[in-house]
Structures are given as structure tokens and as C-alpha cells.
Design a protein around this nucleic acid. Structure first.
Lengths: 167, 167
DNA sequence: TTTCATGCAAAATGTTTGCACACGA
DNA sequence: TCGTGTGCAAACATTTTGCATGAAA
């Protein structure tokens, strides 16, 4: 799951860390070292990731800051609750990405290489709202995923001699 | 998962059954009683369903035509392959719906009652293609799900005295 | 009569939970 | 101190698989 950090940023008053701590305090939850470690790792780079990848990054860290798998799952849920992350389901597993400080967008998903490419479309939200109005539906959000082949995989497919056929 | 059979139909040359048998024959697969039973059940009504629901419907049938769980899963995959069904993932499980003979559409998903409401939007496909072109992405399809509250659940929420609070 | 499909049980996958101990406030 | 969070192991839900038997072609 390679990244495609093409979009800008959104102005935010607090850092993710401040915001998370505020969220925790507002719920009588504690600021623990595990929660801090996970938050820092998650916001250390902009990318799409799943629980396993995050766990792998954490254990790969030199001064192996140990966080257990259940705690990773529990904290990811909290980060979504706190509005810091968004999640979507892709091929059976939950995939996360930054939400806080990052603009609303949707995805192109390459079915060959699994890459997620972000895109923004003003019209999409307009269509969403128009359709929702028609159905007297109150939208709280949406998710659009366009599946297909990214530029590179199209080239790779056209190439006559391809090494170890993918798929 | 209640139905919302609002869209029309698409002209098709063959019945689902004919089409499935053609698909099977083209792949040296066999027309078995289990495959027929599943196909008939799936196309006996227009609805969104998951593997468990289908299995329940099958065992609930009076003259209990028995099909095992693995066979249900295996056959659902074949029906998707054959272009008779489409699948999407919702809350961790695969949800299926008719594809063959049914127009392209997207969904409004009520987060309260879990209902799926279908809608069609010409512009959506146009936006999809425009965005894809911009990114030199070759789209093979897309999936858009708008989450929110359906009309009824909005009413229910506003009602001051509500019986056994949902969620 | 030769495959291919099925059912069973077991495995695999991804995620959640119960509980005793650890630790932040 | 007190109550929440953690890690562990086990449970969980959904889907997939190995294998012996059963049935299409």
C-alpha cells in the first residue's frame, strides 16, 4: 500500500497529539505511553495502513517500544472516535488514514498493485447531497472507491514479456 | 437489511439460470443441484443479503434443500465471477445483490437501521471517468456508499419518547 | 468411469474480549 | 489510592481449505 500524498492540508488549531489528549481527558481516559507511541507513529508519515502494518512499524522501531496487538486495535478505534483517523474496509481488513488536518477526499484503488490514490472532487459532495435530499436521507459522510488499473500497472500489462505474471 | 427495489430493470437476453449454466459450461464446471438451488433462491427476490441470510433462507425452505455453508460461499463467488451478482463489504461481512439484469447504481446506507437504499446517478459515472482520466487511471468500476440516517430513523430520533433506545 | 463438486471438520484471517496485573491521575 | 489500561490467551465471526466421498458428464 504505497502512499500518494497529493492533497494539501487543512488548517488545524491543535496538533494531533494535543487533540488526542483533549479527547482522552474529555472522557476520563488516560494518557498512557502506549497511546502516545501509537499516535506518534501514526502521524509520523502520511500513508494508508492497516493494524498489522502499524504493529510491524512499532516493533521494527530501534528502541522497540512494545505495544500489544489488542492495544493497537483499541487505540485505532479511539483515534477514529477522536476524529484523528478515518477507516475504510478494503479486501476484508480495515485500512486507516489521517483525517485530522487532512482534506476530505476519495480513492482510486488499483486492483493490481493495491495502491490507493487520493482525489478530491467538489462535485462529488454536491451529487451526494442532491441524491440524499431526493431520498430524504441525512448524510453524515460517504466513501467512494474507484477500482481499476493505475498508470504503471496498465503499462506493465501491455508489456509483452512480463516477469512472473501477477494476479 | 430491508430492500428498496426502486430501480428498473435492464434488458437481458438470457435468464439468470441460462446465463449461469452457460458460464459453468464454458469453464468445464458442472450444473449441480446445489448450484441450481442457490441460484434459484438468490434470484427469487431482489434484495441485499449475506451468506448467512442465504443459508438461513435455504434451510428454512419447506422441502429443506440442503446446501452446506462452504458450498454457499463457493457458489456465491462463482455467481460474482459469472457477472450475476455484485458484492460489497459492509461492516466486515460480504453483502451481495443482483447485478445481471439490474442497472448500475450506488447506495445510501442507514447507520441506524442498516437499510440499503439504491440510487442512480448519471453524473457520478461522469465524475468517476473525469477523475480517472486526470490520474491516467483505467476504471473498471466504482462503489459509492453514502452513510447517514434514512427518513424513518430521522423521525425516530426526533421523537422524544422512544421505545428501547436503538444503538 | 473419469473428473469435478460436495460436506465435513479443521484452518485461516482479522478482530474482540475476559481477566489479572500494571500504572496514570 | 483508585480506577483505568495493558498484555496475555482465548474467543469470535467470517470465510477458506484439505480430504474422502458422491455425483455429473
Amino acid at each position: 500500500m504505497k502512499q500518494d500524498f497529493s492533497l494539501g492540508q487543512v488548517e488545524v488549531a491543535m496538533s494531533p497529539r494535543e487533540r488526542f489528549e483533549e479527547y482522552l481527558q474529555s472522557r476520563q481516559k488516560r494518557v498512557t505511553s502506549q497511546r502516545r507511541i501509537i499516535l506518534d507513529q501514526v502521524f509520523s508519515h502520511h500513508d494508508h495502513f492497516d493494524a498489522d502494518q502499524l504493529l510491524a512499524e512499532l516493533t521494527a522501531e530501534v528502541r522497540a517500544r512494545k505495544v500489544s496487538r489488542p492495544t493497537v486495535y483499541r487505540t485505532l478505534s479511539e483515534l477514529v472516535d477522536a476524529g484523528l483517523l478515518r477507516s475504510m474496509t478494503l479486501g476484508g481488513r480495515a485500512v486507516y488514514e489521517h483525517d485530522y488536518g487532512y482534506p476530505q477526499h476519495d480513492h482510486l484503488h488499483c486492483q493490481q498493485c493495491d495502491r490507493l490514490i487520493e482525489f478530491q472532487s467538489q462535485e462529488l459532495a454536491q451529487i451526494r447531497d442532491a441524491v440524499a435530499r431526493e431520498h430524504r436521507f441525512r448524510p453524515t459522510g460517504h466513501r467512494m472507491i474507484v477500482t481499476g488499473l493505475c498508470e504503471e500497472c496498465q503499462k506493465a500489462r501491455r508489456r509483452p514479456t512480463r516477469p512472473t505474471d501477477l494476479i
